[in-house]
Design a protein around this nucleic acid. Structure first.
Lengths: 159, 159
DNA sequence: TGTTAATTGTTATAATGTATCATAGCAAGC
DNA sequence: GCTTGCTATGATACATTATAACAATTAACA
């Protein structure tokens, strides 16, 4: 398992992720209901983008819902509150690696295995702010998604 | 009509756009067939993102096709050759403002009217390259999409 | 406890995108 | 002429992703 494409002890990822989201919810008076928590766990379990219907399949198996709105509602909640991100390029979702903290994420997306690394790119935001100001555009949100090959898939391809 | 959100004489946009794509196709031995040219014209006619099914409706009215693959094939051709861009955030498409020239586009997308301005942000690419290198990621393509309000919609909202 | 707001359950449907196979046009080389 | 290979079209069906709408339930709190 990789985060930022590097090997690591994955065991604590889920626990810590859930814990920090729990804390954030408690602080903001948000309800981390069963379905929402479970979806967060699915996402935290893999540093990969999961589609809404992948999520829905898992919810079905766990007996937490069987219809699309169930998955979309949970995902909407997580994304709206900064606990997960939507990867536009894949119509899919990943857990946020800095839940609760304000940040402008950029994503490195492996086009073979859908692994996603979340990077911080402050300068990009500054460039965009400047460009937007010049154009008279009121910038509210920026998405940076880079597509390529993660280290693992680069190795695999050479075989 | 606006380009880069500024007022301009729109008449020449389509003619010049088609002309430069024609030239690029001639240079590269690509076929700008009837459906492809028409779709390019639809996109050039508006500095806005159009969905594949918007395009398909227009193709139907023009008697150039009635099934989804017709629209998607033309759009794929235009995007693959750099004559149009896909806006991931909207699942929609815009004509490229620098067809034929190599460039790393960033988009300013109005969330009210879907107007799209294409900006050049070289530094972003450099930042990303560096971030990717640090992560061992082989970067192939980057998408930068900013969401906000165009000058016109900012004015309209104040009323 | 009563009231309101938030969440969940459920059905149906919309919107977006592909796989597949058949057909047509055209140019290169025999 | 004929075949071969390539590109583009036509056409059907299907897959995937996402939302609308409304009823039922639960949580929050005065």
């Amino acid at each position: 398992m990789s985060i930022g494409f590097t090997e690591h002890d994955h065991g604590s990822c889920i626990a810590q992720g859930v814990a920090s989201v729990e804390a954030a919810c408690a602080a903001k008076g948000l309800q981390l209901t069963a379905a929402r928590r479970r979806v967060l766990e699915y996402l935290l379990a893999e540093h990969r983008a999961l589609g809404a219907y992948d999520i829905l399949d898992k919810l079905r198996k766990d007996g937490l819902g069987s219809q699309p709105p169930v998955a979309y509602r949970a995902l909407d909640f997580l994304v709206a509150n900064g606990f997960a991100h939507r990867i536009e390029h894949l119509n899919a979702f990943v857990a946020c690696t800095h839940p609760g903290q304000a940040h402008d994420p950029a994503f490195l997306i492996c086009k073979e295995c859908d692994a996603v690394a979340e990077a911080q790119i402050e300068p990009v935001k500054n460039d965009l702010d400047e460009t937007a100001r010049d154009a008279g555009f009121r910038l509210e949100r920026a998405v940076v998604e880079a597509e390529g090959l993660c280290p693992k898939c680069q190795q695999d391809d050479q075989k």
